[in-house]
Nucleic acid binder design. Sequence first.
DNA 1: TCTCTCACTTC
DNA 2: TGAAGTGAGAG
Length: 745
Amino acid sequence: MSLSMRDPVIPGTSMAYHPFLPHRAPDFAMSAVLGHQPPFFPALTLPPNGAAALSLPGALAKPIMDQLVGAAETGIPFSSLGPQAHLRPLKTMEPEEEVEDDPKVHLEAKELWDQFHKRGTEMVITKSGRRMFPPFKVRCSGLDKKAKYILLMDIIAADDCRYKFHNSRWMVAGKADPEMPKRMYIHPDSPATGEQWMSKVVTFHKLKLTNNISDKHGFTLAFPSDHATWQGNYSFGTQTILNSMHKYQPRFHIVRANDILKLPYSTFRTYLFPETEFIAVTAYQNDKITQLKIDNNPFAKGFRDTGNGRREKRKQLTLQSMRVFDDRHRKENGTSDESSSEQAAFNCFAQSSSPAVSTVGTSNLKDLCPSEGESDAEAESKEEHGPEACDAAKISTTTSEEPSRDKGSPAVKAHLFAAEPGGRPRDSGRLGKASPDSRHSPATISSSTRGLGAEERRSPGREAAATSKAEEARALPAKEAFAPLSVQTDAAAAHLGQGPLPGLGFAPGLAGQQFFNGHPLFLHPGQFAMGGAFSSMAAGMGPLLATVSGASTGVSGLDSTAMASAAAAQGLSGASAATLPFHLQQHVLASQGLAMSPFGSLFPYPYTYMAAAAAASSAAASSSVHRHPFLNLNTMRPRLRYSPYSIPVPVPDSSSLLSTALPSMAAAAGPLDGKAAALAASPASVAVDSGSELNSRSSTLSSSSVSLSPKLCPEKEAATSELQSIQRLVSGLEAKPDRSRSASP
DNA sequence: TCTCTCACTTC
DNA sequence: TGAAGTGAGAG
């Protein structure tokens, strides 16, 4: 099993071929040269270095001419396009990179990561999304202070294996499940100047990991075919979808670009930190890693104590409170107002059940666990001087990027780990990893599409890069899910957008795009729920969507009719194109033309040349069977993967649930069914409580309140009796010291 | 193995 | 003050 250090570089990269270049700033435009505003105008816009690209007439001009011909076939007279000689930009762009940069990246919290790696590599994923722990934080240096950069992160499959935790160790348990759609997460501060990035630790703590294929944090932009610039759907989100029990490798990317739109044309520098590799789990398997996290994660502070576990404390407090209740009940029974006394008693019980709100509880908490405060303090101290402090003091992981960067030509710089010079950075199949010390250098890969060089220079890591490239292709088959574009589900959202940019996860705050700001987009109404900032961000994604749509058309064979249907189904009117700014309308029209069949054959080009490759590479690929559809032209049809649309959702017969299900089972049937089931199953307060819990995430306390309160529950006596029984039962098990502490408040 | 709820935490 | 993040534990 070979590891995949994915090489984001695609040989022969040259944006000059890209027929789907999105509309760009006027200085890149050629419209004036062409003498009109052709519908396909955006297709002819140029990358920042377009001038240089076009300076190579022969090979470069032809694809463009092909486009023109294609455009003509779509109804535009070729003659109206003017002579080919005019295919040059009006304005020559100055090279963007006047100041050479030499980015270096340090992994922060290195010690924590090392411990993480030593003790186990479990990273919890949940349905609702879980943050990474340890947090992925880096510090950058060597950036051009003035230049703007976009920082991204993604997580790729580390290998093709599924794992299991057996005999206290992780073992390969078979072949990996179909890969989840990959997403890129763009740091919310992007783009920012090098100076800004270097002035702080760059954290990606907002990124969440989930196993929820239909996660709601993914968004799909849907563009109706009748006026859509970018046909097809594109999903992006702040959550990365992972498979449980699979191994993953986070990656960090630095892109020198002042605009998200330029991502596809910019150089990606990719950094791998082997110690950040992890196995996704839905529940911890290894106590060591659990403890590490408890010790280091502030949110888990509640579990951070030496003596009794929190649960135990809670149990003790509960027992204690019950005793109080019992005492009171006995004392007051028959003499005073039963209801009020019991209410008071219950209040006591309720409060005590929640130490946080009970003075008794809190004081007793201390009594019961005298070491807690101290241990917390210790933990605090430990934390302060722990990993974080160490981070500041010592950065042990540093990149060693080649100082000489090949400007303008595609380059690969794979800086392999010290332990594995010149070879594969990792062997994914290995379970016994190199020691952390051997991994202090991250793998650094730099990919560029700016250059024109047809040849790719490769570092000694070429082999690894080649391997990774093959593996890179593995994830792309997920794009199979392009198919049912008319279906707008979250699952689709999560699944689509697997083009060269496999879904960009934009942090909510990401904004400041210079194009399309404030303009309406053709978003699926049910899927775009973010604010203006994000809207503009999403709008900025347009051109990227164009590339995706290209993939849809070229690879999946999606025709525009399908999109039209989708558009119609979404109630999106083609007239809405009129709401677009002029340049966007141009883009819209042009893209329509481009999306048509004459250009279908061009698809392999753009993706082959897409330097968004690092993003593309985020779509992890398997090494052998599955190949990048844009790298291997013979594999235009990616492997069939799970379909988000075909996930069967068996609806249990509610009647059977009603008749047989336990309340807890009824809960699975949904709130209404659950409640109905609870009600139908039994009139007992327990069942009713369960039902009430189904309707709201009410706490146990409130539920208990319903069932135990004499004012609210008609079965007061029964409840009281039951409570007493429980209390007696528990008292028998209770430790004596606790009893001695159980004084009435 | 996964999901959900809970009480706790931080921010 | 409340939203959000956390592991435990039950199912």
